[in-house]
Design a protein around this nucleic acid. Sequence first.
DNA 1: CTGGGGACGGGGCCC
DNA 2: AGGGCCCCGTCCCCA
Length: 566
Amino acid sequence: MSPGEDGLIGIPFPEHSNELLSRLNDQRRAGLLCDLTLTSRGARYPTHRSVMAAVSLYFRRLFGAEEGGGQGGEGGGGFSVCQLDCVAPDALDALLEFAYTATLTIRSSGMREVLRGAQLLGIQCVADACRDILGETAETEGETAEEQRAQHTEREVMVEAGSGVEKGSRRKTDRKKLKKVGLHHTHVNLAPISPPVSHLSPLHDSIHSLPSTQPPSPEEEEHHLKPGQNGDPRGAQEPGRGATLNGGLHWPHERPLIAHPPPVPPLNDKLSEDEEMEGFGDEGLLVGATSIPSSAAERGGLVSAAGGGRKRKSQTPQQCPVCQKIIHGAGKLPRHMRTHTGEKPFQCSACGVRFTRNDKLKIHMRKHTGERPYPCPHCPARFLHSYDLKNHLSLHSGARPFECPLCHKAFAREDHLQRHRKGHSCLELRTRRPRRGPGHGEEGRSDGRGRDHSSPLEPPSLPPHPSVFLPRGVLDGGNGPGIGPPLLFPGEAERERSLALQALAHLGPHRLTGYPDLLLRGLELRGAREAEGEDPGGTHSPAARHDRWADEMEEKIGEEEEGEEE
DNA sequence: CTGGGGACGGGGCCC
DNA sequence: AGGGCCCCGTCCCCA
């Protein structure tokens, strides 16, 4: 770019955040530039105000670092000591490790303490993760009645503290108290914030002073966190090179001689066992360390995603801690995470282009080698990708299986049809009555809607049978689809679907008779199409995908019914 | 607007 | 469990 141009270019440095954290952690362990010391029951943890303010809402408010907080805090510098006796040393240590590594490394036995500490300090993402895990495993830990009572008390505290995190009124009060103490050698005791905590009995055998410089034991399980909920900087969340979720921060030099007990069963293992017991093996429910879905809706979504008695997914689904997306397939989560981090570790040696995946790099390399491994059997054309060949073959066959239900223009490629429909090229034709009769995918019942096929509930390809777009017909009060169909433009698709599902959910028995009937009608027509030889019925033919969509709709209906029953 | 090529992300299968 | 490989759907770009 010439100097005269002032266009902004963004050059990502995916490693930066990780390196930054890593160096800060080095400084912390070395006691360098530490301007804050946390203490807990005699243990001292030198740390950095800025880091703590970034990761903890409590410290953010304490130091006046909260957005809009102005100059009111203690951000002016100085050396402070925060006494956090209400947070067990182990938990505090774990939280500090999290702050500096984006990885929470704890023993399952210390989960509750970490949860409590996270809530007291306003580290919401950690609190959420701990809550999720404890919610799944609480029954399996073999607690004594006394422990359970104590934990019951804790849970009450948790709720209180958790609600206070956002409102912060009590913390503000506390901060005022603290400000009176002064900047230097400020001894902060969180006990007033959550009084019940302070009288909890000392915790387990884990109360011992762990010097803050101790990295986690290799035996300790790693826990992946759901970031981004605490306003902490991206660097604290972002996995880095070669990183899985834990950010890949290692402790290359200082494996400590920590008197940790022998390896405890990793929490993840426990979870896995539990989930296997709950039929995970059948349905492929969520596993992995992150974000066990806590809401019924999420669980339902997972069940739905896993399929009900349909194709069995042998691989373990995992949930992305960033976008919450369920990633299917063992080992696929790191691959997915690179889409968030921007990390592109696979570089073309010829042109320097980088890729997030090595298989993509491999394909890319074909451009340099000239390799085109997919030759067309009918012409000299060769292709880099198998799907390019597939598309190309449709040209030879003349097959245009993707037909616009509105203007009936046929396309060889589904994405071209989608583009066609998303555009307004056939807008004026949307009110036309379909011209084709039964068996041709239209049946004279077109509802005349352009749909956004990004919706999972809609047939992923066209031409679906319009009758399968039942919801409109249902919503129309039983007038039947195709009678005076209102136009639906792409932007309306989502709302349309939502309304349709709501309507279905409230139809009860009516739906049970009407919907499958229409669904079957659509499937019969699909069969008719196949019989006509329009579609040979390949597994990825539009009809087949239509079929899959029909299955998905059935599942969706099933979920709706379950929701009603509840 | 359409046809075609390519990039990208996700899922399945296999090792 | 992790990774390689392949396929697919979707999107973007260009002619």
